[in-house]
Structure formats: C-alpha cells, structure tokens
Amino acid sequence: MQRDADGVASSPHIHSGASVAGVMRRVLAALAPGVMVSAWFLGPGVLLQIGIATVAALAAEAAMLSVRGLAMRPFLFDGTAIVAGVLLGLAMPPLAPWWLASLAAVFAMVVVKHAHGGVGHNLFNPAMAGYALLLVCFPYAMKSWPAPGAEAWAADVLGAVFLVDTAKVDAVSGATALSFVRDGLRGMKMLAELRPGAGASLLGGGAAWVNLAFLGGGLALLAARVIRWQIPAGFIAGLLAVSLLLYLGDAQRHASPLFHLMGGATMLGAFFIATDPVSSPVTPRGRLVFGLLVGAVVVLIRRFGQYPDGVAFAVLLMNAAAPLIDRHTRPRVYGERDTR
C-alpha cells in the first residue's frame, strides 16, 4: 500500500478507502438540493452559470496541469475544480454575461490555485477569490439579479448571458433583498418604511427556501462526516451574535438576526464555502474561531459594506488569518502538561 522504489513499505498496510474525489463527490451531492431550489426561484440562469463556471474551471485546470507537466487523471477528476466551479456558479448573478463566470473560474484555477502550487496549496478559497475579483472589477454587471417575481425564462436568460443583451437584463433584474435593505438603511430610512412595497417580503424571493435547502445538504455532509461541526456552528453563532447585538441596539436600523440567517448566502457559506478545508484552519478550536469570525464579518459587511453579500469577503479575509489561527489553537499533545 505505502511503498516506494526500494520496496520498503511502512505500516499501515490497510486504508479506509477515503479519497479526495470521494469527498468532493459527496460535497457535490450535498449541494444538489440547494442548486435545485435556487434554480426554482431564480430561474435556469443558475444552472447555466454553474455550467459555464464548471466548464471553464475544468478547462483552466486541464491547461494548468499540462503546463505544469502533471498527470491529468488524478487531478482533473479529483472533483476540486468541479466543486470550485459549482460554488462560483452559485455565487454568480444568474443573468451575468458568460464571460464573467469564465473569467472568474480561470482566475480561480490559474492564479488562486495553481500559481500557489495546485490542489492543497491555495491560501484562498478559489471560488470566492474569483467571485471577489468580479465584484471588485465589474460591480455593475454583478448586480444583475432577477427581481423577485420577474419571470426570466430560457430565452431571456440565454439572451442575457450569451448575447449580453442589457435590455433583457434590465427588464428582469432588480435589487436583492439584502442590498435592498442595506441601501434602504443607508438612505437613513427606517426598517418599517421599507417593509411594504417592492414586494420585499424580507424572506421572499425564495432566499429562505434556498437557505433551508443548503442547510439540509450541509447537515447531510455533517452526518457523513465530510465536514465537522465547528465551522458551520461558529459561522452561524458569529452571525447571530453580531446581528443580534446590532438588532438589540436599534431594531429600526438593523435587520433581524433571522433575516441574516435566512438571507443571502448564509447557509451556503456556513456549510460549503467556509468549510473548504484547504484554506481554513485545521485544528478543531481554530475552526470554531474561524467560523465565528467569518460569521461576524459577514454581518458587518452586509450592514456597512458596499457589496450584495459579505460571505465572499468574510471568508477571504479569514482565509488569510487561517495559519495564524492554527498556530494559536494547537491542541495539547498527549502527556504534555498544559502548554503556556
């Protein structure tokens, strides 16, 4: 099993059968319900974006593998590129032009992943780094979210995505519930004034259902022991704590914790994005700290930031801190008296 050229083989001589590809397959399966529900509420554009991002990610991965002279088989189909593609596609506005998702996927694979050494070596979550690139460079295009209730079906979507027909985009797009609330609050309006009108039932637009679907998939991942409880629990706890604090401070000027919990990419972030093992801490306590910080920063960015959602930047920010967190949360070794 574990051998080298000399024929010297170290124990153990058996293996659990776990593999990177197996882990990624289960992640993809757990994403499926959330993807379906998103597509139900936001239209087929969701699936189209996922397809574009995945194909682009695989193409970029294959190109980088061949440039770096690495074997195609184990790496191209290890599932990491596919998962990154799917997460990126989910983050994309469904009506964004095709080249945006492609650009982000290529950036994620080439710069964020392979320039840092490929699978296992990236400092940042590739999908979120790709998404952040788009948010920074193409903020307007990244706002093409379909307005609640606007029917954006196949023809419109294809037109918007591939022909970059801005008229079609404008016809169906509108502010998301998150940016609607944030922009409203920024305009010094009271939350009560925002509630009627614009169809902005705060949990409307299917966001709550999408979040519930991702929550379900995430719990399945937990049950399958693909991820551990620390990051999602920390994420949700951090998010609830900060939003509750703000809400208790001034309920009229801040959205409710429930809104934060069930809005935006909360559950996707908590269970699927922040839990990316490569770019998050590895110690159990470190993961809890990491989750708490990501959750807290998500609320701060949603409330005070400029972008539709805070998950991407919160995750990236804490990715940078992961080595530091790991270093400070090393567990006590068996037989060691309490360190420090």
Binding site: M1, Q2, H15, A18, S19, V20, V23, P74, F75, D78, T80, G117, G118, V119, G120, H121, R228, P277, V278, S280, V282, T283, P284, R287, R330, P331, R332, V333, Y334, G335
Partner: peptide, 21 residues
C-alpha cells in the same frame, strides 16, 4: 495507490490518539 497533496481536511487531527497535528 494514487497519492494526492494534503487538502488539510483535518481527519488525521481528529483520529490522532497522541493529539498531534
């Protein structure tokens, strides 16, 4: 066997009886 780079999944941390990294 096909070995892949470490993805820092932390499964090893969880099972290590000596509580190592």
């Amino acid at each position: 066997d096909c070995t892949m780079p470490c993805i820092r999944c932390g499964d090893c941390v969880e099972v290590c009886p000596a509580q190592l990294q």
